[in-house]
C-alpha cells in the first residue's frame, strides 16, 4: 500500500561557517501492506521521524520516491496534496503542542472536516461527537479547552482529529512517549482496537521497543538514517540478526527481578550524522566488525529467510567463505 524507494532526505545546514548537508534519511526502502502496523524504531537522531514526516509531505525529500497505493506521491501539487491528506494522517508526540490552546475541542476536531467536507452546523457537531465517542470521550468534552484535559485525554483528541476523514494510513510519531505508563497502556490498547475496527494501516514510530512489539506486526530498525534490519516483529525480537538490533534489545532493562547479565553494553556514542563513518555506519561500535570490509565497503541489504532484510556483511555468504 505504501512503499518508499531509496527515500533520502538531506538538510542543508550551516556548521561553523561551512555549508554542509546532513543526511537524515539515507536510501530507505519500506514496504507497508494494507492492514499492517509497521514499527519504525531507533535512537534519537536516527531519522525515524523524518521518514514519517516526509511520507506525509511535511518535509521535502531529496531523493528516491514514495509510492502510495500505486501512485507516485513524491512530488505533488497543492490539490493532490489535499487529497493525500484525506487518506493519510499523522498523530504527533506531544499532544499539548499539537492542539491549539485557543480552540475548543470541537473546533480542533472539526478543523479537518471543515476543510475537506461540506458538513456544517449541527451535523458537524454530531460528527465530532461520534468521533469523540470512538476515542472514548464523552460529549461534554466538546466545549472544553485543551488545558482542561489530561495528557491522555488530549492524545485521544488528537487521534479523533486524525481519524475524522476516515484515512487509510496513520503515521503515529511517538504517540505515547509523553504519557505515563498507566495511561500509555490505555492508549495502546485503544490504538490496537481501532486499527481493526476502522481497517487502518499504521506507520508507528517509537524509540520504545516494548511498545513497538506490542502494537506492530512488522518492524524496521533505523540507525543513522539507514534501515539496518526489517522483518516480522516476533522474528526480529526473538532472533535479532543485525549486531545493532541485538545490542539495542539487550540494552533495555527488563521490569522484573533477577535479570541475568546480558551482553556488554555498546561502547561509544552514536557518530555525528555530519561525519558519517566509512563503510557500515555501525562499524565504529560493532563487536563483530571485520577490518578491511566493514570499515571500507558500503553494505547492501541481504535477504535472510522469511521476508527479513539485514544490512550487514555477516550475512554475505561469499564473504563468510572468504573468512573461513
Amino acid at each position: 500500500m505504501l512503499e518508499t524507494r531509496d527515500l533520502s532526505v538531506g538538510f542543508k545546514i550551516n556548521s561553523g561557517g561551512k555549508k554542509a548537508v546532513l543526511m537524515a534519511v539515507n536510501k530507505v526502502n519500506l514496504n507497508i501492506r494494507k492492514g499492517d502496523a509497521l514499527g519504525l524504531v531507533g535512537e534519537s537522531g536516527s531519522g525515524k521521524s523524518t521518514v514519517g514526516r516526509t511520507i506525509l509531505h511535511l518535509n521535502k525529500s531529496t531523493g528516491g520516491s514514495v509510492i502510495f497505493d500505486g501512485q507516485d506521491i513524491t512530488s505533488l501539487n497543492r490539490t493532490d496534496e489535499k487529497i493525500l491528506r484525506r487518506r493519510a494522517q499523522m498523530v504527533f508526540q506531544d499532544p499539548h503542542s499539537a492542539l491549539n490552546p485557543r480552540m475548543t475541542i470541537l473546533r480542533s476536531v472539526a478543523e479537518p472536516l471543515i476543510l475537506h467536507t461540506k458538513l456544517r452546523g449541527p451535523e458537524l457537531r454530531e460528527k465530532v461527537g461520534t468521533l469523540l465517542e470512538i476515542v472514548g470521550l464523552q460529549k461534554q468534552f466538546l466545549y472544553r479547552y485543551p488545558h482542561e484535559l489530561s495528557g491522555g485525554q488530549k492524545q485521544r483528541v488528537c487521534i479523533a482529529r486524525a481519524i475524522a476523514l476516515n484515512p487509510e494510513l496513520l503515521v503515529l510519531d511517538e504517540p505515547t512517549s509523553a504519557l505515563d505508563v498507566s495511561v500509555q497502556a490505555q492508549i495502546l490498547e485503544f490504538l490496537k482496537s481501532i486499527q481493526k475496527e476502522l481497517d487502518l494501516t499504521y506507520l508507528f514510530i517509537s524509540h520504545n521497543l516494548a511498545v513497538i512489539r506490542y502494537v506492530c506486526n512488522r518492524v524496521a530498525v533505523m540507525y543513522l538514517g539507514q534501515i539496518v534490519e526489517q522483518g516480522e516483529t516476533e522474528d526480529v525480537f526473538n532472533n535479532p540478526k543485525h549486531p545493532y538490533t541485538k545490542a539495542l534489545l539487550e540494552a533495555v532493562p527488563l521490569p522484573e527481578p533477577g535479570q541475568p547479565r546480558r551482553g556488554k553494553p555498546l561502547v561509544g556514542d552514536i557518530p555525528s550524522p555530519l561525519d558519517l563513518p566509512r563503510g557500515c555506519f555501525f562499524n565504529t561500535r560493532c563487536e563483530k566488525a571485520m577490518a578491511g570490509i566493514c570499515d571500507s565497503r558500503s553494505v547492501p541489504n541481504y535477504l535472510v529467510e522469511n521476508n527479513r532484510a539485514v544490512r550487514c556483511f555477516l550475512y554475505n555468504k561469499d564473504l563468510q567463505l572468504e573468512q573461513a
Binding site: V181, S182, Q184, A185, L188, L209, A210, V211, R213, Y214, E234, F237, L249, V252, L254, P255
Partner: peptide, 9 residues
C-alpha cells in the same frame, strides 16, 4: 501497564 520488551504481546 507496561508492555514487556522480552515477551510476545
Amino acid at each position: 501497564s507496561i508492555p514487556h520488551p522480552g515477551r510476545p504481546p
